[in-house]
Simulated assay, not measured.
Amino acid sequence: MLNPSEVAPVPWRNGAGTTRELAADPSRWRISVADLLEDAPFSAFPGIDRLFTALGPLRLTVNGTVTDLERGDQLRFAGEDTVSVTLDQPTRALNVMTRRGLYRAEVVLRSPSERSPDGALASVDLGEEIADIFLTTLA
């Protein structure tokens, strides 16, 4: 079980926020929890597909398209897309990044009292929920 509170935050690539890298195979995939403290642009990750799971209410703008997300809502976008977050209050987000063409990520949220499903790459302790992360091989 991965626990974000046990990992020190590090600055984003662009310096506009912080993240806690929970697990990674650096050339293939990465699981992290971002601390979203203020409105900010996201860092670019060309060649990477991102699955973003909101852990609180927020607004994402991806290539000019605005999407309001609530806790548990997910959005997929390319790492080279122009993305920014707008917040009414600080929150967090779970990010699963995969090398384009290698994997497709899925995140399933469940209660801590529910049994962990078979085949998860990792499980993340989010307090009132557990996030199970699955990768499907594409290549």
Rank of each mutant, 00 (worst) to 15 (best):
Leu2Gln: 09
Asn3Glu: 11
Pro9Met: 11
Pro9Lys: 07
Pro11His: 11
Arg13Trp: 05
Asn14Lys: 10
Gly15Tyr: 13
Gly15Gln: 12
Ala16Val: 11
Ala16His: 07
Ala16Trp: 00
Gly17Trp: 01
Thr18Ala: 11
Thr19Gly: 12
Thr19Lys: 02
Leu22Val: 06
Ala24Asp: 00
Asp25Ile: 00
Ser27Thr: 14
Ser27Gln: 14
Ser27Tyr: 00
Ser27Arg: 01
Arg28Asp: 10
Trp29Pro: 03
Leu37Gln: 15
Pro41Ala: 09
Phe42Gln: 06
Phe42Asp: 10
Phe45Asp: 04
Pro46Phe: 05
Pro46Ala: 08
Pro46Lys: 03
Ile48Asn: 01
Ile48Met: 13
Asp49Pro: 05
Leu51Glu: 10
Leu51Asp: 05
Leu51Ile: 08
Leu51Pro: 04
Thr53Pro: 02
Gly56Phe: 08
Gly56Ala: 11
Arg59Ser: 13
Leu60Asn: 03
Asn63Thr: 05
Asn63Phe: 08
Asn63Gln: 11
Gly64His: 10
Thr67His: 15
Leu75Val: 09
Arg76Gly: 11
Glu80Arg: 09
Asp81Glu: 12
Thr82Asn: 11
Thr82Asp: 14
Val85Asp: 06
Thr86Pro: 01
Thr86Gly: 13
Leu87Phe: 09
Asp88Val: 13
Asp88Gln: 15
Pro90Val: 06
Thr91Trp: 05
Ala93Tyr: 07
Ala93Arg: 03
Asn95His: 02
Asn95Cys: 04
Asn95Lys: 01
Val96Phe: 02
Met97Asn: 02
Arg99Leu: 13
Arg99Met: 07
Gly101His: 11
Gly101Asn: 13
Leu102Lys: 06
Leu102Thr: 10
Tyr103Gln: 00
Arg104Ile: 00
Ala105Cys: 04
Glu106Asn: 11
Glu106Arg: 14
Ser111Asn: 15
Ser111Pro: 06
Pro112Asp: 09
Ser113Ala: 15
Ser116Tyr: 02
Pro117Glu: 11
Pro117Asp: 07
Asp118Thr: 15
Gly119Pro: 12
Ala120Gly: 00
Gly127Ala: 05
Glu128Pro: 09
Glu128Ile: 01
Ile130Val: 15
Ala131Cys: 04
Asp132Asn: 14
Ile133Gln: 01
Ile133Trp: 01
Thr136Ser: 14
Leu138Ala: 02
